[in-house]
Amino acid sequence: MSDPAILIEGVTKRFRDKVAVDRLDLAVPAGSLCGFLGPNGAGKTTTIRMVMSIFLPDEGRISVLGRKSAIESKDRIGYLPEERGVYRKMKVGEFLTYIGTLKGVDRKPLSKWIDQWLDRVGLPEVRKKRCEELSKGMQQKVQFLATIIHDPDLIILDEPFSGLDPVNARLLNELIRELHDAGKTIIFSTHVLIQAEQMCDRIFMINGGKKILDGTVDEIRADHDPNTVVFEPSPGADYESTVRSIPGVYSLSMGDRGVVEAHLDNDADPRSVMRTIVERIPVRRVEVRRATLEDIFVLLVKPGDSEDMLRAALSGRAGAEALHA
């Protein structure tokens, strides 16, 4: 395996008394598409800003694309911040040109690139428009283009889907996949867990500044497999005593809309339980329950971990500053 695109080792960042990131270790494999999850205020944005060298860690080391800091490889990184904006009075074309120039792209190829990509994201007419004339969704797309304008090897997207309608979300999804297929390393943070589950080949989750999940989607699922068989008995069928008597089943619970969940012992084989159920009672369907990211998220994150609770707990300016920093 090649060197990781991002390597975070024992990184800690404090704002006043609050520890935003706590001895974090993380390795993002080159060429992977990673989801970066966690409740609000978990330290995602702080971690990303440290990766970008916007903040400096208090302890620990971060290397990006094999360099000691992002400053040395900034032109190979595309970063879409969560707090993102545009120069309102600037024309879209000028804005993209400016950002491109800041990232070290030559002017000449830039112009053609901008035309092509504006076309690609369905905004062929906006080049001469002022940024303030665009809708929020359109601005988002322009900002995404600004992120990848210099054809970076590493792309970091902080909440890229927030504020996008389903059509544009799908477009962005496609673009991210394309970039991934082209061999780019991509990390994005999101609250839309389904998306992360569908798109990513790797997931990190942090909570309270600490890493609580790290692995491929399948690995994480396997680790948190609930070992449950779900079936929907035909109406009127008497299933309870029959299913309870199947070896390996230790309890039953009612799910939504007539669905029954059979929870198995850890060492029981779900496939044999399924077979037995089909043989003994009339059912409409039966399946192995897979752990969704949402299940795992809810399992791992207590309501009190969310930023809202934290904000209430931290009173005064220090708290607000810590959160905003």
Partner: peptide, 18 residues
């Protein structure tokens, strides 16, 4: 103030150091 208010600041900081 404008760059900060319009939140374009962090976009800039992704390309150029403070």
């Amino acid at each position: 103030l404008e760059e900060k208010g319009s939140r374009v600041m962090e976009v800039l900081l992704s390309a150029i150091s403070p």
